[in-house]
Structure formats: C-alpha cells, structure tokens
C-alpha cells in the first residue's frame, strides 16, 4: 500500500519537476512547481513527517509560489516569448550531467554517513510537532536563533528596499 503511494507521489514529483524546467511558458512552470511541492508534501507524509509536510504546503506551495504567480500575473510575463531552445543541446546535457553528479554525491554521502536500513518510525506517544518543537528549542536552539536573525535581517532589508524606491 505504502509502496503504491510512494511510486504515485514520486512520479508526480519527478514528472512535474521535469516539466518545470522543460516547458517554455512561465505560468506553466509555476503551476508545475506548485504540483511538485504538493507531491513532495505527500512524500513527507509517507515518511511520518506530518509537520514538515504541512509546513511545506503552507510555506512553499501556499505562500512563496503565490508571490511567483503575482509577479507573473502583474507584469504579464506570460506574454513575453521565451527564446526558443538553442540548436545544440549543450546546456541540456551539461545540466543533466551536473544533476547526476550531484545526485551521486548525495547518494554517496547517505551511504557513508547514515546507518542503512532504518525505516522512519512514528514516535510513539508524541506527535510529530512536539518532537520537532522540542528538538528546535533544546538541541538546535543556536542554529534556530541564527536562522531567525537571518530572516529578520532579510525583512529589514526588504522594507528598506521598498522604502528607498518611493
């Protein structure tokens, strides 16, 4: 049962990820990117990471991609014709080679540093959110705080940019 879902979600994610880079109209790219995010969220659920799955949907699919869509809609970027693909497929092949190299590296890293064959398990008695929250506020407090300071700096920076324009 779980395997069937895994293959369906994996197929959705991969096919839409491929369409994101291969289609030539910005609006289609954004829509398939959203679909890819939803597929990813489904995969997270299969890993018993419900919290991460929902945050994936709220933050990426729900908020960030809306901004992409806003820009495309308001600037009418869809009317803009993208340049036709070049005659030689050098870029395609270079991209494919690099992608496979990165994937190989990640696979190697997993193989070397992760204990093999540990299927993800649901934490008994504690919900996913509780586990993530406790880890963030105890073990990983410093990285968490640093990330929030970084975000704060980004917010201040974007306000400053918006202000100086007017």
């Amino acid at each position: 049962m779980e395997q069937i879902f895994f293959y369906i979600l994996g197929a959705i994610t991969l096919v839409s990820a491929f369409l994101v880079v291969s289609l030539r109209r910005p609006i289609q790219n954004v829509l398939f990117m959203i679909l890819m995010m939803v597929g990813l969220a489904g995969l997270f659920i299969l890993l018993h990471a419900e919290f991460v799955a929902m945050v994936q949907l709220v933050v990426y699919a729900g908020a960030i991609m809306v901004l992409f869509l806003f820009v495309i809609m308001l600037l009418n970027l869809d009317q803009l014709k993208m340049p036709p693909p070049e005659g030689s497929h050098v870029r395609w092949w270079a991209g494919a080679v690099i992608a496979f190299a990165v994937m190989g590296l990640i696979w190697l890293a997993f193989k070397m540093y992760l204990a093999p064959e540990v299927p993800p398990v649901e934490q008994a008695g504690a919900s996913n959110t509780v586990v993530v929250g406790k880890a963030l506020f105890t073990t990983y407090l410093l990285p968490f705080e640093i990330a929030s300071v970084l975000l704060l700096a980004a917010i201040v920076g974007s306000v400053l940019l918006a202000r100086s324009r007017s």
Partner: peptide, 9 residues
Amino acid sequence: NVGILFVFA
C-alpha cells in the same frame, strides 16, 4: 495530529 495545520495548508 496536525489537524489545524492541515486546515491552513
């Protein structure tokens, strides 16, 4: 167990 998050998602 993530009901309310599901709603917002």
